[in-house]
């Protein structure tokens, strides 16, 4: 009976961890919540805090070894989310898929036996911050145009050039373009695994490639287009500079993180 309860406890622990470092199909819950809340603040908080309980659980139970197949599941979940993001047309949903794809990779830290001089929260935050920035910008698009969907033919570059420029930079930050933080996180994961488990490194690279592909599709759908029929109100200078400083801050943070990790 005690063994049974202990096993149950282990499974429950794994289940909760798999919810917050989201594995398929548990990641559906996050996708649903993210789509349900339209508030930029709630979405940002979700992005910032969702993976932290998962990391805390992993970190606080050093004796509990997850089964070996869990890492394969995590990598499979990451690939699946990245692959599914190829066909997404709504930016908000795309952000939630990119988030679950990236967070699922955090299992690699635990399973790959990688060591960091700083808490692993740092990596989760590094992944989440560009997503938060993109969420805030997407909020502007949604307010201005009623949605951030490819089918709306937004043609942002022609209608709101400042917003378009920031949007491009934020998408690039999300898909792990150097020198943004996610690039260094991925590089650390690849470096940490390439010798002992080259398959893990290969999967991370595949996920990275899929992110780039889907990111380019989103950009093309949202930014590009002929002369817009109606002009829209662009971001004012103060807001533009605030976001620009945010992006510069991300880049600087990325370089700092690179210095710590590599």
């Amino acid at each position: 009976m005690i063994n049974y309860l202990a096993n149950m406890g282990d499974y429950l622990y794994l289940l909760i961890t798999a919810l917050f470092l989201p594995l398929f199909p548990l990641n559906i819950l996050f996708h649903e919540m993210f789509a349900r809340f339209s508030s930029r603040l709630i979405r940002s908080l979700l992005l910032l805090f969702w993976p932290l309980p998962g990391l805390a659980l992993v970190g606080q139970s050093p004796d509990l070894e997850p089964p070996a197949w869990l890492l394969s599941w995590a990598l499979g979940s990451s690939i699946l989310s990245a692959y599914r993001s190829l066909a997404l047309r709504d930016v908000a949903i795309w952000i939630s898929f990119l988030a679950t794809s990236a967070w699922a990779l955090l299992w690699v830290i635990r399973e790959g036996g990688m060591s960091f001089p700083y808490p692993s929260y740092l990596l989760a935050v590094a992944i989440s911050l560009p997503l938060v920035l993109l969420t805030l910008l997407t909020g502007h698009i949604e307010r201005q145009f009623g949605g951030a969907h490819i089918a709306l033919k937004l043609q942002l570059a022609a209608r709101t050039p400042r917003l378009a420029g920031l949007f491009v930079a934020a998408v690039l930050a999300v898909v792990a373009t150097p020198i943004f933080p996610t690039f260094f996180v991925l590089l650390k994961m690849i470096t940490g695994n390439v010798a002992q488990a080259p398959a893990i490194a290969a999967v991370i690279l595949l996920v990275w490639l899929l992110w780039s592909w889907s990111g380019a599709r989103i950009l093309q759908g949202i930014i590009v287009g002929g002369t817009a029929q109606s002009q829209a109100i662009d971001l004012n200078l103060i807001v533009t500079w605030s976001y620009a400083l945010g992006l510069i801050g991300l880049a600087v943070a990325g370089l700092g993180l690179g210095g710590v990790l590599l």
């Binding site: 043609q155 570059a157 022609a158 378009a164 950009l219 093309q220 930014i223 590009v224 287009g225 002929g226 002369t227």
Partner: peptide, 8 residues
Amino acid sequence: TRSHTAYR
């Protein structure tokens, strides 16, 4: 930025 072909 108006050209879908260029972006493709």
